[in-house]
Simulated assay, not measured.
Amino acid sequence: MGNKFSDYIKYIFLDYDGTIIENAESEFLKEYFTLLSKKSGIEFNQLLQLIMSSVEGSIKNTANDKNLFEKFSIAISQCSGKSREYWVKLFYDFYENEFDQLSKIVKPKKELIELMRKTDKKLIFASNPLFPKIATYKRIKFAGLEPEMFLYVAHMENSTYAKPNPMFFKEITTKLNISPDECVMIGDTEFDMACEKVGIKFIHINEEEKWRQVF
Rank of each mutant, 00 (worst) to 15 (best):
S58W: 01
S58F: 08
S58N: 09
I59C: 05
I59D: 02
N61H: 03
T62W: 03
A63P: 03
N64C: 04
N64G: 13
N64H: 09
N64K: 11
D65R: 06
D65A: 02
D65V: 07
K66S: 09
K66A: 14
K66Q: 15
K66E: 15
N67P: 09
L68F: 05
F69H: 12
E70Q: 09
K71C: 06
K71T: 11
K71N: 12
F72P: 12
F72V: 06
F72Y: 15
F72S: 07
S73R: 01
I74G: 05
I74F: 05
I74S: 10
I74R: 09
I74W: 04
I74K: 08
A75R: 10
A75V: 00
I76P: 15
I76K: 02
I76Y: 06
I76E: 09
S77M: 03
S77V: 01
Q78M: 00
C79W: 02
C79F: 13
C79V: 14
C79P: 04
S80W: 04
S80A: 04
S80Q: 10
G81Y: 08
G81E: 12
R84A: 09
R84Y: 12
E85A: 07
W87A: 06
W87S: 04
V88P: 13
V88H: 00
V88A: 06
K89V: 02
K89R: 02
K89L: 05
K89T: 13
K89W: 00
K89D: 12
L90Y: 01
L90P: 13
F91T: 07
F91E: 14
Y92D: 15
Y92K: 09
Y92Q: 14
D93F: 01
D93T: 10
D93K: 03
D93M: 02
F94E: 09
F94Q: 13
Y95K: 01
E96P: 02
E96Y: 04
E96H: 09
E96F: 01
N97F: 07
N97P: 05
E98C: 01
E98N: 04
F99P: 05
D100G: 14
D100H: 06
Q101D: 14
Q101R: 12
L102P: 12
L102H: 12
L102R: 09
L102N: 08
S103D: 12
S103E: 15
S103I: 05
S103K: 15
S103R: 11
S103Y: 00
S103H: 06
K104W: 06
I105C: 00
I105T: 03
I105V: 08
V106I: 15
K107H: 14
K107R: 15
P108G: 11
P108K: 03
K109M: 11
K109L: 11
K110M: 03
K110F: 01
E111F: 06
L112I: 04
I113G: 10
E114R: 10
L115C: 14
L115I: 02
M116Q: 07
M116H: 05
R117N: 15
R117H: 12
K118S: 14
T119Q: 07
T119W: 01
